[in-house]
Design a protein around this nucleic acid. Structure first.
Lengths: 152, 152
DNA sequence: TGGGAGATTTTGGGCGTCAATGGGATACAG
DNA sequence: CTGTATCCCATTGACGCCCAAAATCTCCCA
């Protein structure tokens, strides 16, 4: 598989490290992603993690504008200044820092959520809530029934 | 990495010195930047720091305008007249002077913010505020749907 | 279909290195 | 001569790197 799919929850250890799921690491290897860039999701309380192309995608938005415009300035502040580089240790773990914890509410567990070309770091409880909400919205326009399937 | 990305906060010591983050120093070395030039950011209460090419970039901006326009005149005054040179000591620290403190409100801590081809010095609290504002502006211009998942 | 061996993945912890910081000594300028 | 800035060295603490154990999964064979 060459895309980030599904989700998994791992523990944060005493040093603040957490294993990136092997499945996701395989995708990283397959896509030949050496360097990880992380930034807060603009919509959900989650951290988005991806390769350099993730940064490129955001930057194209900046480049499309007048470099001295207020919009481009805001965007640069958020993208260039707001992101961080993430390293994996020999066992494929990353460090949870203050920035990530604050924004996500993550304490001792992290849910990794695949988002096709990137993945995200969520607080497990928060993820379940937001997922349910998204599902509800999705089902809103439909005949009531459906709503059983709890995910594991 | 050969660009200034991410951010870090360091302490100002009793002598008014503050360490430039190692990550940024690496970029400076990689870009072979020997001389640092600092000016006021025109938008935020921050000090912009970069190499000689920083000047070039602003000068091109000035050149692009009518040389007799008030804007070009203002910019020249601020860029050419208002900038200062910054030196790093053996440990990679710079001196916070009155000019920098006045404009940024920095007291005992400095947040270094990467802006791709340069970096900035911010008061940590102020940075957090302005970053939030920028984020809000960014979200404001979007369809209030969000829920589905576009990460932007 | 169930058990079990082997492989993989996750988790825990020790240790060395380097960055950040503090402080004394010295050079320089007003 | 005095105050400030620069240089140099010491300390501290965080992070990266390594190895080991525990937990989980896979696959084969009975």
């Amino acid at each position: 598989m060459n895309r980030f799919l599904s989700n998994a929850t791992n523990k944060v250890d005493a040093k603040g490290r957490v294993s990136v799921p092997a499945q996701f690491r395989n995708v990283l290897a397959r896509l030949d992603i050496q360097e990880l860039y992380a930034i807060q999701d603009f919509v959900f309380p989650a951290i988005t993690v991806g390769g350099p192309d993730l940064l490129d995608r955001y930057e194209r938005q900046i480049d499309g504008e007048d470099p001295f415009s207020p919009d481009a300035n805001d965007m640069s502040l958020l993208i260039h200044g707001g992101g961080i580089f993430v390293k994996l240790d020999g066992e494929g773990r990353l460090m949870m820092n203050e920035f990530m914890r604050d924004y996500t509410g993550i304490t001792d567990q992290v849910t990794f959520v695949g988002r096709s070309d990137h993945f995200q770091l969520w607080d497990p409880v928060c993820y379940e809530e937001k997922r349910q909400e998204a599902l509800s919205r999705r089902l809103a326009g439909r005949p009531a029934r459906a709503g059983q399937g709890e995910t594991g």
